[in-house]
Amino acid sequence: MLRRTLFLLPPVLATVPALLVSGSAQAQGQSRSTWDQIMETKTLRLGAAISEPWYFKDANSTQETGGVRVGSDLWRGVGPLLGQEIANAMGVKLQIVETTWANGVAGLQSNQFDLMFILDPTPQRALSIDFSPAPVLWYPLSLLSREPASAPNWSDFNDPKYRIGVGLGTAQDQYITKILPKATITRFQDNGAVIAAFQANRIDAGCLTAPTADIARGRLKAGHTLLPKPINAVAAGAALRTEPDRRWRDYLTTVVSYYYNTGKTQEIYDQYMVFRGLDPAQVTPISRENWPR
């Protein structure tokens, strides 16, 4: 069955959005803490920005495993399934609130939702919202390459003969501009344009996050995901409101660590890759302990 794949930038790698509300101006009038609100309403509200493999609304309601139905919608991806695990553990129902990466900070501050996975911690965001100290998962920068390579180094690609595509102004752009000054770098508007250029053979490789590169391979039925060394790792976060009551933050830190350390988060990620027609053994793990050394 044909499915549409959305290649959206992970939030920490996109251009940092304007923080609409400062930390001092957040919803201080909220009478209840997040923990009390969840327990009293028996509802955990999860902010979701449509972006694979983190949040995907399955409009076709396909029958593959790895989905969670919230209201009339079937959701897939790390965010909805991890959110459902936490809601089940707390004995509450899960509600998914659609948003965007750019509006994630303001949505948390204005009490539109209680939690947002993969809204990664940055110094700017930390001025306005809080984060669980425990990473939800890890993902590295990679090259979607036409040719395989064993144990490559970034320096191997620092040559004008390599045509590398990257999203304009992203963290990937900043990184390879610094470490690959001799490579032939072409900058594109977004990840979709990078992948289209790769498919059309206008570039030899695209600098993408490993999850994006793996999903692109599944769609194109071509290419290889390379993790050049030194590996550039990004810690994916769990974002929440800043508030004096630390019970929600402490609980979230505990469960996020538990699901990561027991392999549950990796299991959820693998289910999504199977949904996209990929063998989990052939994709980059989100547990960095399992990355090649």
Results as ranks from 00 to 15, higher is better:
residue 254 T to R: 11
residue 158 N to A: 03
residue 280 P to H: 03
residue 55 Y to E: 14
residue 142 S to D: 04
residue 240 L to P: 01
residue 238 A to K: 01
residue 190 D to N: 15
residue 160 P to V: 05
residue 250 D to V: 03
residue 4 R to W: 00
residue 189 Q to S: 15
residue 175 Y to P: 01
residue 129 I to T: 03
residue 173 D to S: 10
residue 196 A to Y: 02
residue 86 I to G: 08
residue 7 F to P: 04
residue 147 E to S: 12
residue 268 I to C: 09
residue 164 I to W: 01
residue 146 R to V: 00
residue 214 D to Y: 06
residue 140 P to T: 06
residue 268 I to A: 09
residue 110 S to V: 03
residue 257 S to G: 14
residue 192 G to K: 10
residue 146 R to F: 10
residue 142 S to F: 01
residue 7 F to M: 10
residue 205 A to H: 00
residue 3 R to V: 13
residue 55 Y to D: 15
residue 77 G to S: 08
residue 109 Q to C: 04
residue 8 L to S: 10
residue 21 V to K: 03
residue 210 A to K: 02
residue 236 A to H: 13
residue 138 W to V: 05
residue 142 S to P: 01
residue 174 Q to I: 04
residue 229 K to L: 03
residue 32 R to S: 09
residue 31 S to F: 06
residue 215 I to M: 06
residue 287 S to M: 10
residue 275 F to W: 11
residue 45 R to I: 06
residue 108 L to R: 00
residue 155 S to V: 14
residue 216 A to G: 00
residue 140 P to Y: 08
residue 228 P to W: 05
residue 215 I to F: 00
residue 135 P to Y: 07
residue 256 V to C: 12
residue 254 T to N: 14
residue 93 K to V: 10
residue 37 Q to C: 01
residue 239 A to C: 07
residue 187 R to W: 09
residue 267 E to Q: 15
residue 224 H to N: 06
residue 149 A to I: 08
residue 85 E to S: 13
residue 187 R to D: 10
residue 165 G to R: 01
residue 223 G to C: 02
residue 148 P to Y: 06
residue 219 R to H: 00
residue 67 G to D: 09
residue 164 I to G: 01
residue 33 S to V: 00
residue 162 Y to E: 13
residue 268 I to S: 10
residue 259 Y to E: 15
residue 157 F to L: 02
residue 293 R to K: 15
residue 121 P to R: 03
residue 160 P to E: 14
residue 217 R to T: 00
residue 48 A to L: 12
residue 57 K to M: 15
residue 202 R to Q: 12
residue 39 M to H: 09
residue 59 A to M: 14
residue 244 P to T: 06
residue 35 W to G: 02
residue 280 P to N: 07
residue 33 S to Q: 04
residue 254 T to E: 15
residue 74 L to K: 04
residue 211 P to S: 00
residue 293 R to F: 11
residue 25 A to P: 05
residue 186 T to C: 07
residue 43 T to G: 04
residue 13 L to A: 13
residue 258 Y to P: 07
residue 232 N to T: 12
residue 140 P to R: 05
residue 236 A to T: 08
residue 92 V to W: 11
residue 101 W to P: 12
residue 184 T to N: 13
residue 168 L to W: 11
residue 206 G to Q: 01
residue 46 L to M: 10
residue 260 Y to N: 12
residue 156 D to M: 02
residue 140 P to M: 11
residue 194 V to F: 05
residue 131 F to P: 09
residue 98 E to W: 03
residue 162 Y to H: 11
residue 233 A to D: 13
residue 118 I to C: 15
residue 61 S to M: 14
residue 113 F to N: 03
residue 205 A to C: 03
residue 164 I to R: 01
residue 20 L to N: 14
residue 224 H to P: 00
residue 76 R to D: 08
residue 253 T to D: 15
residue 33 S to A: 03
residue 143 L to G: 02
residue 168 L to V: 01
residue 279 D to G: 03
residue 24 S to A: 14
residue 77 G to K: 04
residue 123 P to D: 12
residue 211 P to Y: 02
residue 61 S to N: 15
residue 272 Y to R: 07
